[in-house]
């Protein structure tokens, strides 16, 4: 089918397929392990660096990068002669043109250094207590004491696989298998902002208070989404994250949300 396309890039193979008439999904061969997340985050950053005007959004997730685009804007650019040898015929078929250009962008030699790669962010967490009401039960399910569960959670290094679900919510991979947890049978009506939580083989942090079904093991005062900042989300796909266990009073001292 001509609506599917494959790119060979350093690190693996990407398959391109349409998500309707205004988005393209690049899918990696392997499923959502840390390496795949890193590769896709890197693809996302590369495309962002050279982002054409007709691309609206580039969204890395576990095994995909979704590129949202505006076909009319693409066609206008083609008509203005801004797209090299894009034929008139291709300009009337925006998907084909977009797939061709994305392929070319992926082949570009790395221009500037990828400074965002390997960013390591530390996030202070107060485990257990009123900010982590599910820690005891989660630890018991894992056959650990609450202290040991918290220590293992803080010991591991995580990768931001994607942001989604709500503005600024990071899905972190890299949770030690032993710490995996089922979702709550009944979601809570309100999970407080800053809650550090676990579900299946992933951990995450709630940026604002919303209903949620993950097991809450701790609380941070770090602000994950700042609606007044130009880049409102603290974390980006591909970032590495480490949690630092702190006492509740230390968390209050972190109240300025600086790191």
């Amino acid at each position: 089918m001509h609506e599917e396309h494959t790119y060979e890039i350093a690190g693996g193979t990407l398959r391109a397929a349409p998500l309707g008439d205004r988005a393209i999904v690049l899918t990696a061969g392997n499923s959502g392990d840390n390496e795949t997340s890193q590769l896709l985050a890197q693809v996302g950053r590369r495309l962002r660096q050279v982002c054409p005007l007709w691309v609206e959004d580039i969204v890395p997730a576990y095994e995909t990068v979704t590129i949202y685009y505006d076909p009319f804007s693409l066609v206008k650019e083609a008509a203005a002669g801004n797209m090299g040898q894009a034929s008139h015929e291709e300009a009337s078929r925006p998907f084909a043109a977009a797939v061709r250009i994305i392929g070319r962008l992926l082949e570009l030699p790395e221009g500037q250094k990828d400074e965002a790669a390997g960013r390591l962010i530390h996030i202070p967490v107060c485990y257990g207590g009123s900010g982590g009401p599910d820690l005891e039960e989660a630890a018991a399910r894992s056959g650990l004491s609450a202290e040991a569960y918290a220590a293992m959670h803080a010991e591991a290094e995580y990768t931001v696989a994607m942001l989604g679900f709500m503005p600024g919510f990071p899905y972190l991979t890299g949770l030690p298998e032993r710490l995996a947890q089922p979702r709550r049978a009944e979601p809570r009506k309100s999970v407080p902002a800053g809650s550090v939580a676990v579900a299946a083989q992933q951990t995450g942090i709630y940026p604002v208070s919303v209903p949620g079904g993950w097991q809450i093991i701790g609380r941070t005062s770090v602000r994950l989404f700042d609606k007044d900042a130009a880049e409102p989300a603290l974390l980006r796909a591909g970032d590495r994250v480490k949690f630092v266990a702190v006492r509740e009073d230390e968390l209050v001292l972190e109240g300025a949300w600086s790191l």
């Binding site: 988005a23 997730a61 989604g164 679900f165």
Partner: peptide, 29 residues
């Protein structure tokens, strides 16, 4: 499925079998 990008107009089907057509304020994934 692992979470992935969605867009307004995506027709998704939860396990119950009744479709949802996503609209302007849909989640990103």
């Amino acid at each position: 499925l692992l979470s992935h990008g969605v867009a307004p107009g995506t027709v998704q089907v939860p396990p119950g079998g009744s479709p949802i057509v996503l609209a302007a304020d849909c989640q990103t994934t």
